[in-house]
Design a protein around this nucleic acid. Structure first.
Lengths: 200, 200
DNA sequence: CCCATATCTGCATTGAGTGCATCAATGCAC
DNA sequence: GTGCATTGATGCACTCAATGCAGATATGGG
């Protein structure tokens, strides 16, 4: 990595650190981009060169590995039914929420989201993306067993349960492994219902 | 209702109609508040006197009766267990999504949300409110059987399933009763899992 | 008819976000 | 090392959403 690239990452990191410090001190809504820029000693224009929006600076390390979920679906055994595939997919994703959870970045986001509609929206957006991409992949992998509405409903329940569980657990201050366990219980709740009787 | 009040409702309605027409023609993001105000022959300041944000104009008739859900929880039979209570609550709420669904306002929102992050966020916010209020009420009603994280997870799954189902069904152009049926199936999927084995 | 009140309006301001032109440092070829 | 293309940083002007404030105007009640 050349000097140019290193410098770029440095200013980026400066902005992230400045932003986090200010957010922790005053809250998300009370800090302006101009203040972040000033604290990081860059122009506001530079901020938007690195981040599309003010909240993006908090999602730098947000690392839900949706690719692992999609991969789990793609790699299914020919005779494997979708509840089993989903169990693998969710387990893969949950076991790999990493850095973010450990570093406390996720906790900071949840804490700040409590007082910022903008941030809540951004958080929701992330889950919505996972939900719709997975639903799409799922329908394509099991076209005869799951119609589009069914797949969407199923992923809505799964993502809804898992996200609510993680937010609630993080909000409570649980350590990373307990958060993951809460997420697993959430996924299990839904998948149990799917397995109980067939779902469409 | 006096003349003053009628005039107020009239300007409000003018703005709503102007906004809907413009949104349908050009999409949500492509229409400015100034344009809506001009089309309704009022000042932009008046727009914000009636609506806190640009997207609020589309949620005038959004009528998810969360009170019915909370009421269902409050009125529970002493020996009724929470899965049964939740069935009643969800059924009450789903059966009473009314006007909005019939008038096509809900469909317009879903259609516009497809191309507007702002609108998606607003939609998500609505569900999030229902989710957290119900989770809270649920935990308070069954303090020994459902701890806070469990209640949050459960409502996350329920609201996630129902909202995804309704959005998918509406997106498909299903008529109101089919949309409600999709929502019921979503709720059922989750509740079946809860009933299958006890949930915490 | 007069006064309190509520709606509507104009104006100024803040803050997010974008387009554009420019400057300066870096990387690269020779 | 010199020349040149690239690219990251910046300043400036601008749009748009949203808010505060101060008036103008109309309504409704006495």
């Amino acid at each position: 990595m050349g000097l140019r690239e290193r410098k770029k990452q440095r200013t980026r990191q400066d902005m992230i650190e400045a932003a986090i410090a200010l957010f922790e001190e005053r809250g998300f809504e009370e800090v302006t981009v101009a203040q972040i820029a000033e604290a990081a000693d860059v122009s506001t224009r530079t901020f938007f060169l690195h981040f599309a929006a003010k909240d993006d600076v908090l999602f730098e390390s947000a690392d839900v590995r949706i690719d692992l979920g999609l991969q789990a679906i793609a790699e299914r055994d020919p005779d494997e039914r979708f509840p089993a595939v989903l169990r693998r997919a969710m387990d893969e994703m949950i076991s790999n929420v990493g850095d973010d959870l450990v570093s406390g970045a996720a906790a900071l986001r949840v804490r700040l989201a409590a007082t910022s509609p903008t941030l809540r929206a951004r958080l929701a957006q992330q889950y919505a993306t996972i939900q719709s991409e997975m639903a799409d992949a799922l329908h394509k992998a099991f076209p005869d067993e799951l119609h589009p509405v069914g797949a969407a409903t199923l992923m809505g329940a799964l993502v809804g349960a898992v996200s609510a569980a993680s937010v609630a657990a993080i909000h409570r201050g649980d350590p990373p492994e307990d958060v993951r366990e809460a997420m697993r219980l959430g996924a299990d709740l839904v998948l149990r219902g799917v397995e109980a009787r067939g779902f469409r």
